[in-house]
């Protein structure tokens, strides 16, 4: 009975704790109605950030999952020598904090000084500025792909291992080629995992913060005030000390992500994956 109470209390306290935050932040110190929300929703900086992360997600998520699936499936099918070694190496960035990853990449790509721009110049490609307004989003994509492909690959690899061996064997005996096995059999069988990864990656992409915020230390002009919605939240709240406005922006962001998550959950429930 005691244990029962304990187990009931702990999550309940957590739930209350959780709801507390959400109710408190809306009120703030003084009741101002929806004024803050109106400001946020009319802010050009906020929306430009929203569009930027949406664009970012539209490129980064398929790219990450595509590369991850490619490697997961060739490793799992045994088409590569030293597969085990590669799997370990690819997964390593999972252990690297986003801050350190961004610092490393900023140094590597620093205009004029970093090894990669130097290399491109030596190759006769001229001065490539990875921090310019045209290239900054692709640059962040490269960094995030570096950070997360290994994780996605590992999840897909484990999921591929669950595909029943007999099915593949039978298909191969019936003369199915490699392409058929991979695209027509293995890919559909891990489709639920891919959906789940797409969801996780998208939520992560919408919260993009660490990478641009560190890069702005290297090239302040490269990253604007509202480069991503989270940066907008941080800069309004901490930068200009307008906590209430920042909180309103945080709520809008949380709502957007929450709605997306609910949609994803609805899809997964329909597929009977979530109990």
């Amino acid at each position: 009975m005691l244990a029962l109470a304990l187990f009931m209390v702990v999550p309940t306290v957590y739930a209350v704790w959780e709801s507390l935050h959400r109710t408190l932040l809306v009120g703030g110190t003084r009741f101002s109605g929806l004024a803050n929300y109106r400001t946020v929703l009319h802010s050009g900086a906020f929306w430009s950030g929203v569009w930027r992360v949406l664009l970012f997600a539209a490129v980064q998520v398929p790219l990450t999952i595509g590369i991850a699936f490619f490697f997961a499936v060739i490793f799992e099918t045994g088409l590569v020598r030293f597969g085990r070694f590669f799997r370990t190496v690819f997964f390593m960035p999972f252990a690297v904090p986003g801050v350190v990853a961004s610092v490393m990449w900023s140094f590597l790509l620093l205009p004029g000084l970093g090894p990669f721009p130097k290399l491109l110049k030596d190759l006769g490609l001229g001065n490539v500025d990875f921090f310019s307004s045209r290239l900054i989003v692709p640059t962040v994509v490269v960094i995030v792909v570096w950070e997360w492909t290994g994780y996605n690959m590992t999840v897909l690899y484990t999921s591929l291992k669950a595909v029943p061996r007999e099915v593949i064997e039978a298909a191969v005996m019936d003369g199915a080629g490699l392409r058929t096995v991979i695209l027509r059999m293995k890919l559909p069988m891990v489709a639920p995992t891919i959906t789940m990864l797409a969801f996780i990656n998208t939520v992560g992409a919408l919260q993009l913060f660490t990478e641009p915020s560190i890069m702005s230390a290297f090239q302040p002009q490269a990253v604007s005030f509202g480069f991503t919605p989270t940066l907008y939240v941080y800069n309004t709240a901490v930068g200009t000390s307008d906590f209430n406005l920042g909180a309103a922006a945080a709520v809008v962001l949380a709502l957007v992500i929450g709605v997306l998550s609910l949609a994803a959950f609805a899809v997964r429930r329909r597929n009977g994956e979530f109990r």
């Binding site: 945080a250 962001l253 949380a254 959950f265």
Partner: peptide
């Protein structure tokens, strides 16, 4: 569903 990033400020 609610990410820690969105919760940190609250």
């Amino acid at each position: 569903l609610v990410p820690i990033t969105a919760l940190s400020l609250p």
